[in-house]
Design a protein around this nucleic acid. Structure first.
Length: 258
DNA sequence: ATGGTTGTTCCACAA
């Protein structure tokens, strides 16, 4: 069994004790991090290496930043999403681990709608769709995990009406996400748990969203057919969201058969 | 419509 986790940590440095503690307990084989919020050189790589992880890091100052950690060797690293050479935002890293192509994705938020941020989000998603189309042609297993900043459906948000006009839930955003799935990818959590309600991965720090369980499900694993054949489990671990100095996101864990 | 919190950086911005 291979255990792959994704977690938007909202700063690798501020969250370091939480991350190390969780890795020690959960012991995933592969970890996809988003919003590390530091430059590649200042990522606390040594702490993860000391726990036996190899690291591929794509950082930038202050914002964004993604990483892929794995107990097995990390090979053939791709440090950006192809299709827009001028895009400098650190939102994508992809590598091969144990014969599986794996990406850590931090999809643009897109708010406020009406600014250049929203078309940037939609264009980024179209680039991701094009790239996934290319990966599918290899007919090999791949896993695209991360913070998609997409609420796929009404059952994935505590108050659908309140989110109607938000970039995470607008029809154009959801249509672009659907187009990605319709290439033939499997959204692991919903495929395994079609009826599960209140299965959230993010709760805002503001307005008591966590204690009231008013969250949204925006962190996802998308699997190629060859990876979906091996799908065993996908669950949300709410534990880390309850800790002191928690990230606003909690980890999602995927298990694939060997 | 407002309010509310966290992180990084610099006294705003992103989420």
């Amino acid at each position: 069994m291979v255990k792959i986790a994704t977690w938007n940590v909202n700063s690798a440095k501020a969250r370091l004790p939480n991350i190390l503690g969780w890795l020690d307990r959960a012991s995933p084989d592969v970890v996809l991090l988003q919003e590390i919020k530091c430059e590649t050189a200042s990522f606390p790589k040594g702490d993860f290496e000391a726990m036996g992880y190899n690291c591929a890091v794509v950082g930038q100052k202050s914002y964004n930043g993604v990483a892929l950690l794995a107990k097995q060797p990390v090979e053939d690293i791709l440090d950006h999403l192809p299709g827009s050479p001028d895009d400098v935002q650190a939102r994508y890293v992809e590598a091969t681990v144990g014969g599986i192509r794996i990406a850590s994705i931090y999809l643009p938020n897109g708010n406020p709608v009406g600014t250049e941020k929203y078309p940037y989000k939609l264009a980024w998603m179209e680039r991701l769709r094009q790239h996934a189309q290319g990966l599918l042609k290899t007919e090999r297993p791949f896993v695209l995990g991360g913070d998609y900043n997409i609420i796929p459906a009404a059952e994935d948000v505590y108050d659908p009406q309140a989110w109607e006009t938000d970039a995470l839930f607008r029809p154009e955003s959801r249509a672009q996400f659907r187009a990605l799935l319709n290439l033939g990818l499997t959204e692991a959590f919903r495929a395994l748990h079609p009826d599960e309600q209140h299965a959230y991965t993010f709760w805002d720090y503001q307005a008591g969203r966590w204690p009231r369980d008013q969250g949204i499900r925006i962190d996802h694993f998308l699997l190629s057919p060859q990876a979906a054949d091996r799908l065993v489990e996908c669950r949300i671990d709410k534990g880390p969201r309850a800790e002191e100095k928690a990230s606003d996101h909690t980890p999602v864990v995927l298990e694939l058969a060997d």
